[in-house]
Simulated scan of single mutants.
Amino acid sequence: MSVRIALVNDHRWIAPIDPDDYARRILTEDALVGEALRHRGAVVERVVWSDSEVDWAAFDIALIRQTWDYFERYPEFLAWLARVDGLTRIVNPAPLLRWNADKRYLIELAEAGVPIVPTRRILRGDADRTLAEWMDCDAMACCVIKPSVSGGGRETWRIERAQAEAHEARWQGLVAAEDMLIQPFLPEITSAGEVSLMLINGEVTHAVRKTARAGEFRVQDDHGGSVAAEPLDPALSALARRVVAAVPFWPLYARVDLVETERGALLMELELIEPEFFYRFCPEAAERLAEALLF
């Protein structure tokens, strides 16, 4: 009997009407994964994670793809994970998805010896210090603030120390609503961008470099960033493998986002839930994913 696999998306990416370049890239990537799985005898269907009509028990595997609204519907997504986890095999595993959804994992990885961008986590409701005071604690001339649970650059702001007081109302509103992270702004982000390395079963398959558009520091497509294939660098590949080895649950797939600095490469983020995997730059990686998933 054929293995039935759900490619799990959010509602925007199943059948977009008049898709733009961004949506077409998503459809292309899912097609590469789907064809690699079908080539190995699997039955593949693209489904919406939040669709109450989906019979998850009818699938042998639920492969997370573009669930890019999960952080906007976080309690609902966690409840979905808890419900579906007993009905089918979720990949990556549900405990790993829960661990990776909150960026406090960066602090845990740092404690395990992984070099990260220095990160301070401020708990929701902590109004003991102003943003300027937090910046002064770590001697930051410029910082980046972001929610601990987020994606796509949501509520991510670059703030100069001289402008901290002007952003205090925004900061207080954000930290009243959710846990927040404060990190130093690294100028290498705007000068050289991020290097993303893709791994399947702990082995690096390919890499891309993501760069921000002029006047922006966020590298995501949503904010005008661009992506190009990047040759594999042995030192960065070794660091990516080290990052994945420090994770408490083994991931089938992982994307490791690094920034190269004068102090060496630092982990920006580790994407284990629904990373854009840039299969279009390396279709062979989709074949390797299918092989690892099914055999």
Rank of each mutant, 00 (worst) to 15 (best):
S191F: 08
S237P: 02
I145V: 12
G153H: 11
V244P: 01
W99L: 01
D136S: 12
V33Q: 04
K146A: 10
S237C: 15
V175W: 05
R124A: 15
V114H: 04
T156S: 08
A176Q: 09
G215W: 11
F278A: 13
V195N: 00
I17N: 15
R129G: 14
I189Q: 06
A162G: 08
E276G: 12
E160R: 05
A229S: 15
V208E: 05
C142V: 08
Q163F: 11
L87A: 13
I273W: 06
V259S: 10
A228C: 14
V204M: 08
F71Q: 01
V117S: 03
Y253L: 11
A245H: 06
S191M: 08
E155I: 00
L289W: 08
F217Y: 15
V84D: 02
S150C: 09
G264F: 13
D20C: 01
L232S: 12
E291Y: 06
A139S: 13
V256G: 01
A162E: 15
L239P: 01
L289N: 01
A42H: 07
A101T: 06
E108S: 07
E260N: 12
G113W: 09
P16A: 10
S237I: 12
E35F: 01
R288Y: 05
K103F: 10
A141T: 12
A23Q: 13
L96F: 02
F295Q: 14
Q220A: 12
E29G: 04
G225V: 13
Q66W: 08
V227G: 02
Y279Q: 06
V259I: 15
W80P: 01
R255K: 14
W56R: 00
V33G: 00
L294S: 02
F185D: 06
A79S: 13
S150R: 06
I200H: 02
R280G: 11
Q66V: 05
A240R: 01
V256S: 02
C137H: 14
R124D: 15
G224M: 07
F185L: 10
R65L: 03
R242H: 12
P75G: 09
A141N: 15
R25I: 04
W80F: 11
V256P: 03
D18F: 11
E271C: 02
V208Y: 02
V195F: 07
D60M: 00
P248M: 12
V8P: 00
W134V: 05
R158N: 14
E194F: 08
H206T: 09
I14F: 09
F278L: 10
D138L: 00
W68N: 04
A212F: 04
L266C: 13
A101L: 07
R120S: 14
A235R: 12
I189G: 04
N201G: 15
A127I: 00
D10E: 14
S2P: 12
E271M: 05
P187M: 13
L131V: 06
G215M: 09
L87Q: 09
R38K: 12
L32R: 02
Q220W: 10
L87N: 05
L266K: 12
R12M: 13
Y74A: 11
R129I: 11
H11M: 09
R73M: 14
R263P: 06
V8I: 07
N92D: 06
D179S: 10
T28H: 15
V91N: 03
E188W: 05
L27D: 15
A112E: 09
V219P: 02
K210W: 08
E291G: 03
